[in-house]
Simulated assay, not measured.
Amino acid sequence: MVSSFVTLYKMSYDTEHVRNAGDTPGMITGIPTFTELLENPSLASLYTSIRRSATATGPELVESTTVSKKTVYDYLHKLEQAGLISKVDDDGGTAVYTAEEFELTLTVRETEVTITPELIEVIAQKNEYPAIERVLEDYGIVTFALAYDLVKAHSKGNVTIRQIASLTDLSPGTAYDLVEALYSILDLGDDESTPTTYTPDNFDEDEGDLLGEFADK
């Protein structure tokens, strides 16, 4: 079996265009599929299923997903054309697919975030977690990706929920709901069922440095 390779996309994004980063931008293929991955939990779930299984066939995916057979094969075609999956074998005339790893870096108004398969796996579950769907629809993928990074930092005790809300412009309630959802999906924290909220005395003076730290990633 052919091992999967890393497809690395370094990109710059603003409200008018998407292009390669660098002095001589080139054409990027698969942008519509990347966009749909961020918006369509069924497509994100199919990609995630292939990635979790290492390999998968169309019939296996038809059995394990909730979308129609036609939709499964339409999605496989989209993902393959975008370079997100590839055929690695032929099992008695049935194509065997593996998922490709990727890293998509977006820079919007000097804030840089990275879209990874792990983030897509979270987005695939947005229908089950209203907070995820709310943040994606109301604030967009950049804010969501930044919040995702901050929630992981929160699990290590590096930031507070109040700081997450301030740095992402989410309301405190939405920030808490999102932290709770991501804790559940990512199995963060210890045995507590909900994340701990605390506010350090030096919150205001540290806030700017935290934003700079995550913008530089």
Rank of each mutant, 00 (worst) to 15 (best):
residue 182 L to F: 05
residue 115 I to D: 07
residue 141 I to S: 01
residue 57 T to I: 13
residue 93 G to N: 03
residue 96 V to D: 08
residue 149 D to I: 02
residue 183 Y to K: 10
residue 125 Q to A: 07
residue 206 D to R: 11
residue 81 Q to V: 09
residue 72 V to L: 12
residue 157 G to D: 03
residue 92 G to K: 00
residue 176 Y to I: 04
residue 147 A to K: 12
residue 75 Y to C: 01
residue 174 T to Q: 14
residue 215 A to S: 07
residue 134 R to M: 10
residue 190 D to E: 08
residue 145 A to N: 11
residue 18 V to P: 02
residue 43 L to C: 04
residue 150 L to I: 02
residue 115 I to T: 11
residue 125 Q to L: 11
residue 25 P to N: 11
residue 64 S to C: 05
residue 170 L to Y: 14
residue 17 H to R: 12
residue 83 G to F: 08
residue 80 E to V: 09
residue 66 T to F: 11
residue 4 S to F: 13
residue 29 T to M: 13
residue 19 R to A: 08
residue 42 S to Y: 15
residue 213 E to G: 06
residue 148 Y to G: 04
residue 12 S to H: 09
residue 104 L to F: 11
residue 146 L to N: 04
residue 49 S to H: 06
residue 212 G to K: 06
residue 47 Y to L: 07
residue 143 T to P: 14
residue 21 A to R: 12
residue 165 A to K: 11
residue 192 E to F: 11
residue 144 F to I: 05
residue 141 I to E: 03
residue 103 E to R: 13
residue 23 D to A: 15
residue 196 T to I: 06
residue 178 L to N: 00
residue 29 T to Q: 14
residue 1 M to A: 11
residue 4 S to R: 12
residue 76 L to W: 03
residue 190 D to H: 05
residue 37 L to Q: 03
residue 15 T to I: 06
residue 31 I to Q: 00
residue 4 S to A: 08
residue 145 A to V: 14
residue 132 I to D: 01
residue 217 K to I: 11
residue 59 P to V: 15
residue 57 T to E: 09
residue 121 E to I: 07
residue 214 F to E: 13
residue 12 S to I: 09
residue 41 P to C: 13
residue 133 E to R: 07
